[in-house]
Amino acid sequence: MTSTRQNDLFDYSPITDRQPIRWPDGARVAVYVGLNIEHFLIDRPSTSIWPGTADLVPDALNYGWRDYGPRVGIWRTIESLDRHGIQASVLLNSAVADHYPQIISAGLERNWAWLAHGRTNSILQAGMTREEERRYLADVVGTIAAATGRQPRGWMGPGLTETFNTPSLLAELGLDYVLDWTNDDQPYRLNVPGMISVPYTVELNDLLLFGNGTTGPEFVQIVKDQYEQLHTDAEHSGRVMALALHPFVIGQPFRHKYLDQALAYLVAQPDVWLTTSDEIAGHFQRMSRE
């Protein structure tokens, strides 16, 4: 079947043809840590380390691997973030508020930025009608706002999924940016009033990197290489670097010191703006209005 639907969510905009972006204090690269804090269902196939048991119920092997994140991995990851003074941008499944309230409390103590990330990463929203999705998004956003005391501004879908209605429905709920479209090194406007896209990454992402055999030292070098190239690119216009982390991956003991090394490198860079996705979105929106 040949598709005839055109992409009307955003326009083509080559990065060489845009107005320059200036980050605060002359920084060249805005860096944020996208910390995925998720809840998985025990009776649904989900992200797996070994597909051989993924369709079993219960799937002790893969569920246990994922469940290491909220039980152990998140606390080890928090240690590193605290040590380097980094405020996380948390991609939060709303079900976390019910199942892991201690994590919400830890984030409130650290003033994390809270982004809506669906209800659970075991269920995607593809196929929902507009009304079904409106109710779903309202529940997700409302649950997170009640748990954190703050209305989320940003959205990333479970598995980076959207429907054609998602951005406009999010705008109705008061959100103003999405991370799902990993196609740029700068924020850009969507063709939905008030909505922008902020860069995220499926490449500089522990789940994909380590899942494809990347070693700890290679991970550190990849972080350095990413920053160095973006720093070069940003000579005349700022860039965004997202570092995507999952506690059940990066929180494994044998990877911990490599996260520490990567964060130490980023903190030491003189031209970096270590910030949150909320701050990046807000700065871009303000700059665009000037």
Rank of each mutant, 00 (worst) to 15 (best):
N191Y: 12
D176C: 10
D184P: 12
L160S: 08
T182L: 04
T214S: 07
F219W: 13
T166Q: 04
Y188G: 05
F219P: 00
V178R: 06
V192Q: 03
F210P: 00
V198G: 00
E218G: 12
W181A: 01
T214A: 15
S197E: 05
L169S: 00
D185Y: 12
V178A: 06
D180Y: 10
E162K: 02
T166W: 01
N183F: 03
E218S: 11
L190H: 00
P199S: 07
N183E: 08
P199D: 06
W181F: 15
D180N: 15
L175V: 11
P187D: 08
L190K: 00
T182P: 07
L179Y: 09
V198P: 04
F219I: 10
T215N: 10
L207T: 12
G216K: 08
N205E: 08
D184Y: 12
T201Y: 09
L160W: 13
P193Y: 00
L207Q: 05
D180H: 04
G216L: 08
E218H: 08
P193M: 02
D184R: 13
F210L: 02
L209A: 09
D206T: 12
D206R: 06
L160P: 02
F164S: 08
L208P: 07
T215Y: 13
N205G: 07
N212K: 09
Y200R: 03
G194F: 00
Y188C: 08
L169T: 01
N191G: 00
N212C: 09
N165V: 02
L170Q: 00
L208R: 13
I196H: 02
T166Y: 15
D206S: 05
L204G: 15
L169P: 00
E172P: 03
V198Q: 09
L204S: 15
P199K: 04
T182W: 03
L175P: 01
N165A: 14
Y200N: 04
R189Q: 15
N165T: 05
E203G: 11
E218M: 14
P199G: 11
L204M: 14
L207R: 11
W181C: 06
L209M: 13
F210D: 00
F164E: 12
R189I: 10
V178C: 11
L160V: 14
Q186S: 05
T182N: 09
P167N: 13
G211Y: 02
V220G: 02
Y177C: 12
V198R: 03
L169W: 05
